[in-house]
Amino acid sequence: MPSQLMDAKKQEVVSENGSEQTRSRKQYSPRTDIFESHDQLLLLADMPGVKQEGIDITLEQNVLTIRGKVETPNFPGYSLAYTEYGVGDFERVFALSNEIDRDGIQATVKNGVLKLILPKSKASLPRKINVQTE
């Protein structure tokens, strides 16, 4: 079976060593698309309910971590009658293979989707070498 088989449900974050979270809230792994072109990586992550200020992106060495805080909705006088999705924060860690130009990273969020543009550093771009005839 394909290992990347995704359930239609939100994926809860499972830590690598199987240890339990010490946080009280649930954490979910955002569904992500990653596209690569010759000069950049484009990453799109579904993070519904995350505001612009709730997003935290870190790049350490070549480990990229994206986090998104979600506020639990509270409707006074109402009680939760039916539920299909859990509410919690988002977190996902990616290991990047290419050297990334840290200063050129652009992050935007729109309608609950985080868009990250990670330009490759000049040094890591493939160089074309012209062959000259003598």
Binding site: D46, G77, Y78, L80, A81, Y82, E84, Y85, K110, V113
Partner: peptide, 20 residues
Amino acid sequence: PTNVWTSEEGAIVRSEIPGI
């Protein structure tokens, strides 16, 4: 995916549809 809250006053329906 949809969650529904209810009370005597009515209902609140919340659906996660990112990117639309």
